[in-house]
Amino acid sequence: MNSEIEKSDDSPSFLLWQVLNLWQKNMRQALQAVELTHVQFILLIATDWLNRQCEQGDVTQAQIASYAHVEPMLASQVLRSLEKKGLLTRKEHSTDTRAKSIVLTEEGKQLASQAFLIAQQVDHSFIAKLGQEETDFIRLMKVLGTE
């Protein structure tokens, strides 16, 4: 890569920022139909998925935050707001007295399913522009997403 970028359209970071903002705008608008913010959606889906993988149902807030790559303090605030909406419950953890197990309510599970379908539609219409290059795009995002 050249050390000098002639115009902003050639800057990978600027292009990534633009694409991410456009995708987030589309996602925000679509999720308004189910009255969820994007981060609420992410944490709702992460909670659902992790609980499906855990036989004991002892998924903690820290596990959810880590899986979703969300700062623990933000995850705490958002999960609390989802609890107030009646979408999840917190109960005593079976082995860690400092932690709470987080489980979706039936309403939370239904909303997660509905929101997931909405998000899939947004993703499909957004990524469809890539055509046959979608597979390469996904592979490259995985490369960029590793530390």
Rank of each mutant, 00 (worst) to 15 (best):
A46E: 04
I64F: 08
K109C: 15
L36F: 06
E134K: 15
V78M: 00
H93N: 08
A65S: 02
Q121K: 13
R80M: 01
E134F: 13
K109G: 15
L79T: 05
A46Q: 02
S94R: 14
L117W: 05
R98W: 05
I42A: 03
Q32M: 03
F41V: 01
L36H: 06
T95M: 12
D48V: 00
D48Q: 14
V34G: 08
A30G: 03
H124Y: 13
V70I: 13
G57D: 05
F41M: 00
I102K: 05
T95E: 14
G57R: 09
K84Q: 14
T105K: 04
M73L: 12
A75C: 05
T97Y: 15
D58W: 03
G131R: 07
T47N: 07
S94C: 04
K129I: 12
V122E: 09
E35P: 00
M27Y: 13
F116A: 07
S125I: 00
F41H: 06
S81L: 04
R28T: 05
I64C: 00
K100V: 11
Q29N: 14
L130D: 03
A115P: 10
S94L: 10
V122F: 14
A119W: 01
T60Q: 07
S81C: 04
E55I: 09
K84E: 13
I102H: 02
S76R: 15
T89Y: 11
Q32F: 02
Q61W: 05
K100P: 04
R98F: 05
F126V: 11
I42R: 10
F126C: 12
T89D: 14
G108A: 08
E134R: 15
S66L: 07
T89I: 10
S66W: 02
Q132N: 08
S94N: 10
R52V: 09
D123M: 12
L87P: 00
K129F: 12
A33D: 15
D123H: 14
L50A: 07
T89F: 09
E134C: 09
E92I: 08
E107Y: 07
L111N: 06
S101A: 15
E83V: 10
T97K: 15
L50G: 04
H69Y: 02
L104T: 03
K100G: 12
I64N: 00
I45C: 00
A30Y: 06
G86R: 01
D58F: 07
A65I: 05
Q77M: 13
